[in-house]
């Protein structure tokens, strides 16, 4: 009886899976389609990622769009051609002059140590901290805000930690920098020095549980053993093996290379302003 079953009925119900959709060939990254500048292939500098970290977009895929990132980078480069935004790291001492409607001479200059930085693209920001007249204060600056007249790096150096928020709980002498500090000399081509100072913290209570943060730049905290035991329970030693976490938090290297090749035509200008600021450091220190 089954042999009398017409074949087409089975086809109606048990269709073959549809063919592979013809997908448009989308390049992994828009490679200079409109402005072709592949002649001068700049060698990729090894420290681009640390010197210009805000050029890398936020890795969250829901927010990414190549055209918007490109437009944002163009705006960033335009702004950088007007105001030289120097290379700086957390732990560097900087002086920022902003236009201030409420100040007496319409400008406001603040000197401080960079305790944190973040943001991508035009939203990039950094925090400066200083202790003035025994009062600790911090100011957050948006790197691409047009109110900023000038950013100088008075002392270019790195610290042992990636964030210096513990300076809020440290003795005030570690956050005190004179407001009339002179820029310090750095020889041409020298690597960025790492200041391995160990900061002494004030007695508890603190803003955060510093014993849990694996800080390298603080002296022995002098806490009872139970704090360190609790800290050990909160440790996540597996995170350094978590490849997916790293994948989600970073832009792939190939894309990074593409991005930096895109801004390669402007690299000369960026690097010259970076060298200029270093030379200015050298010049001013002579006097």
């Amino acid at each position: 009886m089954l042999s009398a079953v017409p074949r087409r009925i089975f086809h109606t119900f048990f269709r073959k899976p549809p063919a592979q959709r013809v997908t448009a060939k989308v390049p992994p990254y828009i490679r200079d389609q409109l402005d072709s500048n592949t002649d001068n292939e700049q060698p990729l500098p090894h420290d681009f990622r640390t010197v210009y970290p805000e050029f890398l977009p936020d890795p969250r895929p829901e927010w990414r769009n190549r055209l918007r990132e490109r437009l944002e980078r163009n705006d960033m480069l335009t702004r950088r051609s007007v105001v030289a935004i120097p290379e700086f790291y957390i732990g560097s001492i900087m002086a920022v002059t902003v236009g201030d409607r409420n100040a007496s001479d319409k400008t406001n200059r603040f000197v401080g140590i960079c305790i944190s930085r973040g943001g991508t693209g035009l939203r990039a920001w950094f925090n400066l901290r200083n202790v003035i007249d025994h009062q600790g204060l911090e100011i957050m600056y948006e790197m691409y805000s047009p109110l900023i007249r000038n950013i100088e790096v008075l002392r270019l150096e790195k610290r042992l930690d990636e964030e210096l928020l513990y300076l809020r709980d440290a003795l005030p002498e570690y956050s005190t920098f004179p407001l009339d500090m002179e820029p310090e000399l750095l020889p041409e081509g020298a690597p960025v020095p790492i200041n391995d100072i160990k900061v002494k913290l004030k007695p508890r209570p603190w803003h955060e549980r510093w014993e849990r943060k694996n800080l390298q730049g603080v002296q022995d905290l002098g806490l009872p053993q139970r704090f360190y035991n609790k800290a050990k329970l909160h440790e996540k030693p597996w995170e350094k093996y978590d490849l997916m976490m790293e994948y989600r938090a970073t832009i792939p290297e190939e894309e990074q290379a593409d991005i930096f090749h895109e801004i390669a035509p402007h690299y000369q200008q960026l690097e010259s302003s970076r060298r200029q600021s270093k030379r200015r450091l050298a010049q001013t220190s002579r006097y």
Binding site: D75, T78, R79, S81, V82, V83, G99, D100, R101, K106, Y144, P146, L147, I148, R149
Partner: peptide, 10 residues
């Protein structure tokens, strides 16, 4: 504010 213009001065 256009980025190619200089910083804002009051």
């Amino acid at each position: 504010h256009v980025f190619s213009k200089p910083s804002i001065a009051f």
